[in-house]
Design a protein around this nucleic acid. Structure first.
Lengths: 247, 247
DNA sequence: GCGTTCGCTTGATCCATGTCAACCAATAAG
DNA sequence: CTTATTGGTTGACATGGATCAAGCGAACGC
């Protein structure tokens, strides 16, 4: 069992800084235009801050659901397992994004959430979120939007899996990552992948060899420079063009 | 432009019977255990009831979002369109299910909803739903569960598209339909498909020929009897077994 | 520092599904 | 009733990606 071992240092840190109101991710994670008083009440939402070490689970499929999680820093994947052993990565999540929304429906988590690098999360007890969002209109609306955005994102993945070919899928994937890194103030053209070829393949419905070949192809074509997990995008438009060409 | 032509008859009908409290779908669509007073307030939620004729759009991608829709009777598909003309069916919805949740995030619909048979829907203005769910705890929670269930469903489709082969996909599709018909009091073993092979294929990430061949194969194997859109399931376990066999 | 493991790349081959095409059945239109 | 149209089935063939296999570099444990 991979367990979490909060360090002393970690504990004090969480006491000092668990506050949405001064979190530098608040534009990503919270509604805009809250009053000071509302912001203060929101700070009470976060029950705990936790470190999750690379490779550890934040939660597992089947566990009772009682909180959703905001990623404060780090990188996660979620995956679902079929009885017969097949599994699929359903998403990669980065700082400012939420984890655990799928657990609301059955009150049990339906997928595994695993840290791909040492990460920090804020746990938001769901019943408290519901009661606070009955009082703060903007919070309620924001939460609904976040859930809806997740549905729209999933439709995008369905589109990708259902209609695109291997290279298009990988191009879409890279462009999506690039865009999300940009939104977080990182370079849009240069980043490190936190996941393996196999995890990318699982997410994109491809085998790792196919992913690897597509990377090589993109490099040959001059769209990107790859060196293991280090990616530099050299020609965004090339990648975009690749996606829109018929068949 | 396909428009809706409500008939006089239709109008009176909607005045007489627009009431969740006596809707025979309420177990599917509403939280349980509401007080009478709460049920009455819920009835006010539904602003209009509309007929949508086979082939007509309930809404289109890009249109402003202001309501979600409960299907009172009938059958719908939703699809998304890529710029280059490719499209994909993202779901089939039947009585008691909700349409339009994807529109909350951007306040515009992100897909098309098209009736596959003459249908009736209840429009639920979203702002009213939000304000009422701030007051009725059970309604709020139910709504969150419904959104979450949609996310879980989408993960199931991603799994299907990402890891299953053609026959497994079709088997999963048939079993899912069967189960949903059963939940609505229809036969679990015999039903009419409302969609074409092409639409099934689009949903499952397959070409219509492949769908057709898989149907024929299932019939040869004795799992089902097919005659155009009429399906009889003869061996549920056969279909289930097909899905869990390795590769 | 050295061996082991893991992740990645690349080549050769195979196969499931796509593509193209012909034909048939059901339904709608005239 | 006759014809046009749409949806479905089936066959022959093509191909994208899976599979199998070998080898290599980077990271990690000892």
């Amino acid at each position: 069992m991979s367990q979490n071992h909060p360090l002393k240092q970690d504990m004090t840190l969480s006491v000092i800084k668990t506050a949405c109101s001064n979190c530098n991710l608040r534009e990503l994670c919270l509604p805009l235009g809250l009053s000071l008083e509302e912001l203060e009440r929101l700070d009470d939402l976060i029950s705990t801050r936790r470190r999750i070490r690379r490779g550890d689970h934040l939660y597992r499929a089947g566990e009772a659901f009682d909180a959703i999680y905001a990623i404060r820093s780090g990188f996660f994947k979620t995956d679902v397992l079929l009885e017969d052993g097949r599994d699929q990565v359903t998403g990669f999540q980065m700082a400012g994004e939420l984890l655990g929304l799928d657990g609301i429906s059955s009150e049990h988590h339906t997928c595994n959430a695993i840290a791909l690098e040492d990460s920090e999360i804020c746990a938001i007890p769901f019943s408290r979120l519901e009661s606070l969002s009955r009082e703060i209109h903007a919070l309620q609306h924001h939460f609904h939007k976040v859930m809806s955005r997740e549905i729209v994102r999933d439709h995008g993945v369905m589109m990708l899996l259902g209609t695109m070919r291997a290279e298009e899928r990988l191009a879409a994937f890279l462009l999506n990552l690039s865009q999300r890194f940009t939104a977080r103030g990182f370079s849009h053209a240069e980043f490190y992948l936190r996941m393996t070829r196999e995890e990318i393949g699982s997410y994109l419905g491809l085998k790792l060899e196919t992913v690897s070949r597509a990377f090589s192809k993109f490099q040959e074509e001059g769209y990107i420079a790859v060196q293991q997990k280090h990616i530099r995008i050299l020609d965004v438009n090339g990648l975009k063009a690749l996606m829109s060409q018929r068949h």
